[in-house]
Nucleic acid binder design. Structure first.
Lengths: 233, 233
DNA sequence: GAACCATTTTGATCTTGGTCAAACGGACAG
DNA sequence: CTGTCCGTTTGACCAAGATCAAAATGGTTC
């Protein structure tokens, strides 16, 4: 039944979520799952559906979003290798977010029932799940405070600093995905994102196309006033 | 060492978090904890501090908030009987939110180290913690989408509907706490909250002081366009 | 290299919500 | 009963961001 190629296993086994669990149990989970390739712009699941699978993005780029009345909003951009929608799977409640691929992506699909069954038996997996959910909660707390008490250019500035930090404090990098998606993630319109980049030009950031160059990190940080608490992961 | 009075135990033992755990273990947790009474407007802990205690509000009203640059924002109003800041305790990371009492409150303080120790041993507690964190995550997802794609009067309308639902669809109730706090929770200024209440007058809501009367639930719902997905708890 | 397409940017204008100031009102002390 | 204090409401104004329209940019195909 497993459509999973051997080559992927080490990467997945190294995930915080699966890292500490019993080897036999992990084998059981992985052999009950399947790896699928999806084209770009494909909807993986919709908000409101029963949570049938835990998803692990192995390769590509996935957007988690919510379509409200009229407009949509991007909640998270998932980069490999990361699991997503753990909370819905765990609680056996409907998905709160929809997911679509942004680029062609490979996704490991772990049947939710299997996941829940193994969690009950494997304490290490349960602990890892708990930890993962706690970190996810904290991410959301940060995102919400960001939205509530920062304005748009400041949010962009912080996002750039964080993004840079994620790639070893690179001062020169490419934005992944389209700007419209970034705008939605940051809670603004594409037009406004453009203007926000304009504002940041005067605070040490140079942009051309998708290429961002942080010319003056101190100036950018002074404008962004980043959270003094370090990121959790 | 236990300052806990016998009278509180049944209520606390009935909490989803502690309900299913081993009786002896629960006894161990509760006897290692203490119940304290705090006056109104007292800071229980500050964002950035080490998470020393899991808190359980037994009686009173507590505000979780974040003080950013200049302004504050309310993240949650905790009503009894509820545990709070589970994620920080679980991960042994600093608090992301500060907490203050709004009214005189009784709080059970469970030492974080004790909590973490017992979680490791008691699978039922671990499972309950996991579940609680998942629900907390989902709460935050909802709050963030609310902030990102609804405008202020709409957020108020939804809050009123939810608040009403929490008390058995009462159409007539009192707001708990001050309006300034409600405004901050909903991500607006007190002035704007006033105007939002004004807007809702034309949509079936009557207000005088802290007393809210929903005269026309259908009209309010039409304006609020509430989430079709039911609340998780 | 030219034409075409989608995305991004720019500009003008409008809406929402924030700010500041003043009036109002209810709770409480004297 | 009356004055004081604090939270709330109202009003006038301002600023941030959304919307709408049009121009520019960049990549792709023929």
């Amino acid at each position: 039944m497993s459509l999973m190629r051997i080559g992927e296993k080490p990467e997945i086994a190294r995930l915080p979520l699966f890292r500490d669990m019993d080897d036999a149990m992990r084998e059981r989970v992985l052999s009950g799952s399947f790896l699928q390739v999806f084209p770009p712009q494909l909807t993986l699941f919709e908000r409101g559906q029963q949570a049938d699978f835990l998803h692990v993005l192995v390769d590509g780029l996935v957007e988690l979003y919510v379509s409200g009345t009229g407009r949509d909003t991007t909640m998270k951009i998932v980069e490999p290798v990361t699991s997503f929608i753990l909370a819905a799977v765990m609680t056996d409640l409907p998905y709160l977010m929809s997911a679509r691929t942004l680029t062609s992506s490979r996704v490991l699909l772990v049947p939710a029932a299997l996941m829940r069954e193994v969690i009950r038996k494997d304490t290490a997996l349960m602990q890892a799940t708990m930890h993962e959910l706690a970190l996810g909660y904290r991410d959301m707390v940060r995102a919400l405070t960001d939205m509530k008490l920062r304005q748009s250019a400041e949010r962009l500035a912080n996002h750039l600093l964080e993004f840079s930090a994620q790639r070893g404090n690179a001062w020169d990098f490419e934005l992944s995905g389209e700007k419209r998606v970034l705008a939605s993630l940051l809670g603004m319109t594409p037009e406004n994102l453009s203007r926000a980049f304009g504002t940041l030009k005067e605070h040490g950031v140079n942009i051309s196309g998708a290429r961002v160059r942080i010319e003056d990190r101190a100036a950018l940080a002074a404008f962004a006033r980043p959270d003094p608490l370090p990121a959790d992961r």
